[in-house]
Design a binder for these strands. Structure first.
Lengths: 334, 334
DNA sequence: CCGCTCTTTGCAAGCGTGTGCAAATGCTGC
DNA sequence: GCAGCATTTGCACACGCTTGCAAAGAGCGG
């Protein structure tokens, strides 16, 4: 291992002919330094290549500037897009993102939070998985702020950011009905994530209000392949559905591909399809999927501004955002 | 801002009735502690919820355990997949990833590296953009290790991981020729990334060796939309190409969609298409794209193991990996 | 019981910062 | 020139940890 030799404030001070505190103050926002010393310090730092050691600063200030993102399936379009938005806005707010991958096991969300504590992260943002209550308590006790995105946990303390899943689901149903669809289906994964389940329940409830039955099928993880399987199951039923709401766009893409290529079903003429997330592929001309756009920028903004808010005791605990309906041609009419 | 109150080794020591160094040694691999004290320390830590402060540890050891990933377009399938592989393998090696988004401006790669220095990252891995030479020098001078993925820079010091782009390009040409294609085209973005340019040059060179001309078109950023524009340009030529190698899969998907839906061209009957990266969408049944799989796991492994290697002076500087040809039905024959 | 070796333990220095406090400096008005 | 004040500067301590060093303890053969 190479010997790291970073230049310290001490060396800068010596070169600039001032005290070390002067150097520190030059790089501390709102500290009192004369323009003259400031100039000398900046000159010396530039010459030596000095950079404030944020580990030491974090140690002193008891505030590291680190925010931990806890994510699984980060290769997925929706997740990666959310990560992009979050990292960007965190950087704009002068913070830095630490990324923890929780693909391996389920308990790894807890491990991830422990990691966040070790690095004294100012906050953790959980995009997937569900932390054990004891761990979130540990985080909160340590003064670490917590944001749960699309997790809808009932715990006190964290900020919970969610979408109006039920309302969206009900709008899909309306669209299906207007298009003259009769036999409704809902295609879901087996992940059981709160937001996915909320869409399912919302769709069923909206249908029930109109006296319509919904066939529900669930399979596997929330991905393209599962969409294909779900299509095989739903489209081989005696009473083949003529409208299906897929819990996510990835499921919808798989569903649509199988409907078209394996069953030679025409979309939207014989089958209307809706998705959720508005991933990039939904707008590709092979899909033209009607879907709801996850307001990733707004989600990120809510999370980041909340982290800067003064008193966690007064801060709001829950935010519900709206997902716009993006109308494309996978549903008739419009 | 809430008052963070983390429990320190001092408190654990008091509760366990031992010295603070005993606590430290309990959590230091390879230090000498008796089983009895170890037990007492672990018990007390558990009860108090103690976690070693990695900021302080990094300060002392001069080794933070942080590795900085510098990325643009992280919402993109290939990039996000590489990030996934890297974070996972870094975690397995006991390190943690810090993610810096460089979408904003071009100089932001330099800003990102400065950020890495501030947090005393042990290393930085650059997936996109090109750092200024003065900055990489600064990093190396500070003992920070550097990995460049698919950047093919000629600088000394960093590890450069690249693929055999030229060979891949030549294999595509062979496949096109075998399929009986006559009029070759290469579709590229205007990004000018070394790997993209290597594929372009390799394809042209392989064609020239057989006395075949290649029409080259370049447009915009490296994404789906650019693929559509490129198709419009290439497919409206008087001599319409019957084979096109797209520099990436995203370009290929856009190209294929436009060829089919706007020009009603049948793939692969009238037009053969190849891509590069093997993103998830390439295997979707709407595309079935013949392409080369980026060996993301191998790339990540090379990067992570290199970081653990003993002496940076002896360490190798460059690695060339092979991209497997994934044969699907966007090229005739096979 | 002594001398020897080996392991375990505590002390204290040091990592690179931020910041309260008091001293020093500069400026203003008389 | 001097008192009065605001601003700037340096000192020294604190943050939480690792680790070299020496002292203490444990085990053991003679």
């Amino acid at each position: 291992m190479s010997q790291k030799v970073f230049v310290s404030a001490q060396e800068v001070a010596e070169r600039a002919g001032v005290s070390r505190s002067a150097v520190s103050r030059t790089f501390t926002h709102g500290a009192s330094v004369s323009p003259e010393t400031r100039r000398k310090v900046l000159e010396a730092s530039e010459a030596l290549g000095y950079h404030v050691n944020h580990l030491a600063r974090g140690l002193m200030r008891n505030e590291s500037g680190i925010v931990c993102l806890i994510v699984s399936d980060m290769g997925t379009p929706y997740r990666s897009n959310l990560i992009r938005a979050l990292t960007q806005q965190l950087q704009d707010a002068g913070k830095i993102a630490m990324l923890v991958n929780t693909d391996r096991s389920d308990g790894s969300v807890d491990l991830a939070l422990r990691q966040a504590i070790r690095y004294r992260a100012d906050a953790s943002i959980i995009l997937s998985g569900m932390p054990d209550k004891s761990i979130t308590q540990l985080c909160l006790k340590n003064g670490q702020r917590l944001v749960l995105i699309n997790r809808d946990d009932e715990q006190e303390g964290p900020l919970r950011i969610n979408l109006d899943d039920a309302e969206s689901a009900s709008r899909v149903l309306t669209a299906f009905v207007r298009a003259g669809c009769q036999r409704m289906a809902f295609a879901n994964s087996e992940a059981g994530t709160p937001s996915l389940m909320a869409r399912e329940r919302g769709f069923i409830a909206a249908a029930k209000a109109l006296g319509i039955d919904v066939v529900v099928e669930r399979f596997g993880p929330t991905g393209y392949e599962s969409g294909k399987i779900l299509a095989q199951r739903l489209l081989t039923r005696r009473e083949r559905p003529d409208a299906v709401f897929c819990a996510t766009d990835l499921l919808a893409c798989g569903f649509m591909d199988t409907a078209r290529h394996q069953f030679s079903i025409s979309v939207p003429d014989q089958l209307c399809i809706a998705g959720f997330d508005d991933i990039a592929q939904a707008s590709w001309s092979s899909y033209q999927l009607t879907t709801f756009s996850q307001p990733v920028e707004a989600i990120a903004r809510e999370a980041v501004t909340w982290l800067d808010e003064a008193d966690p005791a007064i801060a709001r605990q829950s935010v519900r955002l709206h997902a716009d309906l993006i109308w494309r041609s996978s549903i008739r009419g419009g």
